[in-house]
Design a protein around this nucleic acid. Structure first.
Lengths: 139, 139
DNA sequence: ATCATTGCAAACACTTTGCATACGC
DNA sequence: GCGTATGCAAAGTGTTTGCAATGAT
């Protein structure tokens, strides 16, 4: 996604910019590694020493509500966040390096007969296993 | 899944049966609605008044470890449990009635080019939306 | 008698809420 | 100056841990 001016993008999406909001959005935009709340907080607390986790939570919830950001739930205990991406894609969580990768998938070829009568608002696909990097190291 | 004797099935899977373990396993077996820890606890506390949530958690974690049961994480705040089922299937969570449905899916037709080098140990697919029952009521 | 299971209470981790302070227009 | 955003502290929720009592063989 190409966003040249974060503040005007936020305004476009009906979010009033603030120093914290801009920095949090920028962090998620720059770090496509699907950070947790803690990672965002730890990374920004250097630049914004007064930052509180409450603000990170408040801001992320606002971003989710306004569809700027989406939450990725793979393990129940760690919520991860990413720029909202309505395109078909899946996630791959590596059991060794713990990284979360985006995988581009074509859902359209799945047989969905059984889902005919269901109204799908969201779809989430994720895989768990070993990523290519870690597989190499294991040999 | 057809299981005629729960205790011998548990033993087969290297789990020493106990009154609590048998009842918890039976509950998940009988209730294919993917119960939460609370639902299991509430349902069994009538029959086993001394039952504690700790035991439910301990038992479920043991079952997961021994691959008798699997955990389904859709929303981060509610872990749901189901009999372990290694076959391709997805879950559908209804936003209105909150029920969780099993959906039989054929993953094999998905284009997985990008995943060639990844070693997949688990795959999870879930949809969120409105189930047929609730869709009817909404009209 | 020994060893494993149970279950209470406390600890933990993650997230939300209440409210006073600070900030931006 | 007014309305909103921030951030501390406390509360809430779901889960795990420590440990004494209980139960099974």
């Amino acid at each position: 996604m190409k966003i040249d001016n974060i503040d005007s993008y936020l305004r476009e999406k009906d979010v009033k910019p603030s120093y914290q909001r801009t920095k949090i959005f920028q962090y998620i935009l720059d770090n496509h590694n699907h950070p947790t709340v803690n990672q965002i907080y730890e990374a920004l607390t250097d630049k914004i020493p007064t930052l509180s986790k409450t603000t990170v939570y408040n801001t992320l919830n606002l971003f989710i509500e306004k569809k700027l950001v989406e939450i990725i739930t793979i393990e129940g205990n760690e919520a991860r966040y990413d720029i909202y991406n309505p395109n078909d894609h899946a996630h791959f969580k590596c059991q060794l390096c713990k990284n979360l990768f985006d995988i581009h998938l074509d859902f359209s070829k799945m047989s969905l007969k059984e889902l005919e009568d269901y109204k799908i608002n969201e779809q989430h696909i994720h895989f768990i296993g070993i990523c290519p990097e870690c597989a190499k190291k294991q040999i």
